[in-house]
Design a protein around this nucleic acid. Structure first.
Lengths: 335, 335
DNA sequence: CTGTAACGCGAAAACGTTTACGTAATTAAA
DNA sequence: TTTAATTACGTAAACGTTTTCGCGTTACAG
């Protein structure tokens, strides 16, 4: 149906060679302005757009990047994608999205399928289900890759993260300032530096204030909302903590439900604080004190780094870019 | 660095022609099982994956679809993408994501950039900022396209939507059942069938119950959270409605804030109900009665339709697929 | 007036596939 | 035994670009 408006067609109509047309379209110095204008005008008139496959094949560039993340239906990641998309658009790049669903095999399969020149580079936030460090150690040698938020340390790649340790420390201190001494920890991302850093910040803050950490007060995330409600309820009944510090957003609903079911008033009986990018945090009952990560900026920053690499610009020596999270105090910590 | 493992390499190592290799890889009937196995084994051993650009160029198929939506950082759309991705993965397709930010020019620009063979088909939920019907009337002739949720009617294309009219009617009746007689309407998507259908459902339900609709009780969505808080507050003060029916999720936070600032108790002084896919609706203060669209299923269904078209399967005559939304009654309507 | 550089353009190869067509060898039918 | 059909594979063109190299023309310095 589309009567093939390609470079050859343009060349014929203008009575010049296809090489000249190609160079003109790419604004080559070899072509006179006069010829360029003739080509550009006709291209616009005929609505010519280059065939990406042909262009990719010849030039080995796709103008496409891939984003590999656990989920898109997650506030943090969807905001990150917004940031990535914004930068990609500025550079005229296309964005492929892959969800791993925290499945390490899917993660590998997707990423491998990108190594044959489908994309010029990859942005990824790795799966937390298992340690996949070895795989990535190899991968970074094969394709330009930037990690964001969920990273592996000590890899030769750019990593964009947040100040997990510091903000967790600060948040724990906030709970202590509010009078809490028995702060339970809802543990997520345990296989990843981010998860470990958050936990370390929590532990160190406790110790700095003379509070002995207790393994009994730590709950690990399980797959499935009900399971988490159950285990939190058990925690509440058995050990009566006076605060819940949740290291991932997924614990929020179970935590609120568990407290409600246990008949505990937030923040009077128990205080809650969580890492989260929920826009509705301030509307929860009661409004939730959160550690909010700059998801959008993380996406932007990671994308910018990738494009610097793709365009061979020297990266500012530093491979670790750390953005600041912010602690937003609301009713759930009650002070 | 990657020492070029392509079809030619395989052919050389096996001492057969590249045509035979290609056909073997594609499981052609022309090739003996014995040869196929030799090819497959070596391909696996050398970790061969076909070059997508070359394959696309020759075959005019990309195994890639595009999703063009207003935003990804939105519960409805990110869930839709999850559904789309799931189906795409089953079929071995890749998914490109484009956000229009409700900008009609970006929408056209992106979509046009997909017409040169970059993708095999498009899934889209159109921008609500203006009427872009003419553009899409042309577009559907040029590329396989499936609309979901935000559609234009009377176009020769498959459309996956929800029962907006019926559920809005039902929701309005629910408010009336709860004793409301002065139900304000927070109007979104006014340029689209979905927005019009929701409003019509609201109006018809009022009339059916002998309530005269009033233009004064209708508020149109403005860009920016504060602006909406302001106009809702003005509405509350001036006309004292006893319910707010919000046709889009974006009104929720402004509505709650406005009521709070106006000193109104939900649901005693005023009831609230909204179209929404917020997972935190049940945790809001008070929990929010919502009309929840099957976002995930919409994505799945739309993707399935697109693949049917791509694979030339006859579509089940019907071009309009309508999924059911569900009204979830919670505290904000108080009965 | 010659030699050299710069400029503007074209011819042709190359990227890695897919596929129409040809062909030789084997098998089945007559 | 001859012929037709089938099987299994190879040759080569094609997809639409980009890019290297070369060539003719003009301009200018010597």
């Amino acid at each position: 149906m589309a009567e093939a408006v390609n470079i050859k067609r343009l060349a014929q109509e203008l009575n010049i060679s296809i090489a000249t047309v190609s160079k003109a379209l790419n604004d080559s110095y070899e072509i006179s302005l006069k010829t360029k204008n003739r080509v550009w005008d006709l291209a616009r008139e005929l609505n010519y757009t280059p065939n990406p496959a042909a262009s990719n094949l010849r030039s080995n560039k796709t103008k496409t990047i891939a984003v590999v993340i656990p989920f898109v239906a997650n506030n943090f990641f969807s905001l990150s994608i917004m940031g990535i998309e914004e930068i990609a658009r500025q550079y005229g790049y296309h964005v492929l999205i892959y969800q791993t669903h925290e499945n390490i095999e899917a993660e590998k399969a997707f990423t491998n399928s990108l190594l044959n020149g489908r994309v010029d580079g990859i942005l990824t936030s790795v799966s937390s289900s298992e340690d996949n460090r070895e795989y990535y150690a190899n991968l970074v040698k094969k394709i330009p890759l930037v990690f964001f938020d969920r990273v592996y340390e000590d890899l030769d790649a750019v990593k964009v993260t947040t100040d997990d340790y510091e903000i967790a420390y600060q948040a724990t201190e906030h709970l202590i300032d509010c009078g809490c001494t028995k702060i339970a920890y809802l543990f997520g991302l345990e296989n990843l530096p981010a998860g470990k850093a958050r936990f370390a910040g929590y532990l160190d803050a406790l110790k700095a204030h003379g509070i002995a950490p207790s393994a009994e007060l730590v709950v690990n995330y399980l797959d499935g909302e009900v399971l988490n409600v159950e285990q939190i309820k058990k925690l509440l009944e058995k050990f009566q903590p006076d605060a819940l510090f949740s290291s991932i957003e997924e614990f929020i609903i179970p935590a609120y439900c568990a407290c409600r079911e246990a008949g505990l008033q937030i923040p009077d009986d128990i205080k809650i604080l969580s890492f989260s990018n929920l826009s509705t945090a301030k509307l929860l009952s009661p409004s939730l004190t959160t550690i909010s990560q700059p998801a959008f900026e993380i996406g932007r920053e990671a994308a910018k780094c990738l494009f610097k690499i793709l365009h061979k610009k020297q990266l500012d020596d530093e491979q670790n870019i750390i953005l600041k999270s912010v602690l937003i105090k609301r009713e759930s910590t009650g002070c």
